[in-house]
Design a protein around this nucleic acid. Structure first.
Length: 108
DNA sequence: GGATTGACGTGTC
DNA sequence: AGACACGCCAATC
């Protein structure tokens, strides 16, 4: 079976190193999806049922905002995990997002 | 199989 | 600076 966009997103998301974050748009482009950044987020919503689990907390929107924190088991868990990995989160947004941004197109 | 739906992105007001 | 609008595109119902 060919992998759906979901699986592609999941795999790429799992490649995100600790202490790093990436944006939905970056992932989408990396997959050749271009403007279908929403599909990436949509896929991440199903990440909860993915195996192995997907570090969705390392994926934020282009502003570094933790948009999907509410989708986690508990809101705030996302920030918790990020801070645990050394990512500074302030007001639901990643600090130095630009610096911590892990671009698959460049890093990979 | 058409309509709805988004963890988005960028631009405009 | 904040709020609003439109575009994209695949998966789900």
């Amino acid at each position: 079976m060919e992998q759906s966009f979901y699986d592609q997103v999941f795999e790429l998301a799992r490649l995100i190193p600790e202490g790093r974050v990436t944006s939905y748009g970056a992932i989408a482009r990396s997959l050749g999806a271009g403007g279908s950044a929403r599909m990436v987020g949509y896929a991440m919503a199903h990440a909860g049922a993915a195996d192995p689990p997907v570090p969705a907390h390392r994926v934020v929107n282009s502003s570094g905002l933790l948009t999907g924190r509410f989708h986690f088991k508990t809101p705030g868990l996302m920030q918790e995990l990020l801070e645990k990995e050394g990512v500074e989160v302030k007001n639901d947004k990643v600090r130095d997002f630009k610096t911590l941004l892990w671009d698959p197109l460049k890093e990979l």
